[in-house]
Design a protein around this nucleic acid. Sequence first.
DNA 1: ATGAAAGCGCTAACAT
DNA 2: ATGTTAGCGCTTTCAT
Lengths: 329, 329
Amino acid sequence: MKTKVTLTDVARHAGVSPMTVSRFMRSTNEVSVDTGELIARSVAELGYIPDRAAGRLAGASSRVIAAIVPTLESSVFAETIRGLSEGAEAADFALLVGQSDYDPAKEERLVRTFLGWRPEGLVLVGSEHRRETRRMIAAASIPVVEVWDLPDVPIDHAVGFSNEAASLELTSGLLAQGYGAPVFVSRDVEQRRLSQRRSGYERAMLAAGREPRCLTARAELSPLAAGAAILVELGPQQPVDLLICGSDLIALGALFECQRRGIAVPYDVAIAGFGAIEVGGSTVPSLTTVSFDSYRSGRLAAEIIAEPPTEPRRLDLGYEIIWRESTNR
Amino acid sequence: MKTKVTLTDVARHAGVSPMTVSRFMRSTNEVSVDTGELIARSVAELGYIPDRAAGRLAGASSRVIAAIVPTLESSVFAETIRGLSEGAEAADFALLVGQSDYDPAKEERLVRTFLGWRPEGLVLVGSEHRRETRRMIAAASIPVVEVWDLPDVPIDHAVGFSNEAASLELTSGLLAQGYGAPVFVSRDVEQRRLSQRRSGYERAMLAAGREPRCLTARAELSPLAAGAAILVELGPQQPVDLLICGSDLIALGALFECQRRGIAVPYDVAIAGFGAIEVGGSTVPSLTTVSFDSYRSGRLAAEIIAEPPTEPRRLDLGYEIIWRESTNR
DNA sequence: ATGAAAGCGCTAACAT
DNA sequence: ATGTTAGCGCTTTCAT
């Protein structure tokens, strides 16, 4: 087996011109059936795999989607990646993946690296991007899909939901159920989606004539640890009957810590999360949360890039409040 | 801003030859400081991003790592991807990611697609690959790293641990603690890493003169659901005092279902998992499990590809049994 | 239905 | 330290 099999090798082997092989490989239907079979045999025999870089350089589509998520650590964005991966595969695209660690500077670096491959499109989470990042993207003039949020002014396309509206609805629903002293719980990080959730909570509280109260855990803690740590701070403070958490993992951390301390959920304190990760549906009590179709957002983003609409899309995938036992007293 | 800024554009703008710009971009240190500054300014002004496809075609390294994992769904492989992503970034590589859904045929398709980009190396999970997959890889003659297992005959490099030894040690440890009737619990799927774990369990049981007993849930169930479903089957069967689960998620599913049914863990039945996902450390009771450094395996795989050793590496990362409350009666 | 020529944007090899 | 030439493997355009 030769080290590098090229189009020309296949052509020679099949006794046709390289151009004919090229046509066949791209199935342009301009190759006669007989010649096609001949070529197919040569391809198989030589184990030819077209060089996509050469193809792209010569004018073909790169068929690459580049995606950057804040973190691969939680299953939250992993679901988006899964959607992207499946959408990409369905359209015969390859997927370039990077994680920004919630750091716009790192995002910028990744965008630069990825643009070097001239992807057909770019998928980013959220709407906090550096000026330089936006500049590069504009210069590249490729479709961009921002997921997990609905920015007021998206770069291009957006597939998400209103984190604020979801949080507002969750909080007011809980208030209506009679909870009197809900606090908002999160890690001490700067991040638009989180502040949207907090702001939804605050608006609901104010609308009900209540004083919003926010508790934060150190940013270095993992979400699970943060949820547990929050309970320490709670101590013998003013009465709190409900923890509205910035994410499911924080909520689970709090829930488990309650179990450990013999605090009955939802009777002594109720807990709600955000994100609807699967475990939250199995715990005892199961976790009230907000579900967003993370997988679908990825899948749709991939589809938008595979077949870019002429007009910018702004898809509101909505959300669903999942009422479960952790807030059902 | 021009639509496509090329090396030549930068050269013209800076008043030097393309070759000098090329040298500068690759920081070959053969460009004088003055010229360098001139070029740097032009690059910034024009927003030049080198075309990696053209570079590769002309002989530069592709600086791409291609990785295929069985699934992006669980956090298990997400950690490996995270390690890969960070390792790749540290070496200025881009990462191509795909998921095979545990399907060797899909893996084969992905390998073919990815090889079209002429990656510097390939990362695969496990050792079950089709003949054609192996053929393509051999023809590509690039480093391959198999992670999460230590095949008897790796394709090339391997970074993993012995799933069987881990399971054997876990089981015999549990047996030594006095558990008399442990069953092995998993979904009904064909997969080497799982069968290794089962076989470790069986060997430990036989060595102790006990009859191994395996319970399987339908493959279509999610791991969490499978763990719960298993408890139904358990019903009024022979006494079972310990569930050794094929994965942490199954174990958690079982644990939560026990809580739901008022079965005391570990007193009525004990539970052990495999994989050491983070939640398992927070649940009440916390979950006994086997930890494997999934992140590190990815990181090391990336490093091997970034700087391939001359000899095939076979890194046994080992495992650690984490004894926790779910088996502590 | 098939082929020939040109060139995509870059780098290696060889000048100077 | 810098420039020139050639060509990577493919697809485009324009023949035939």
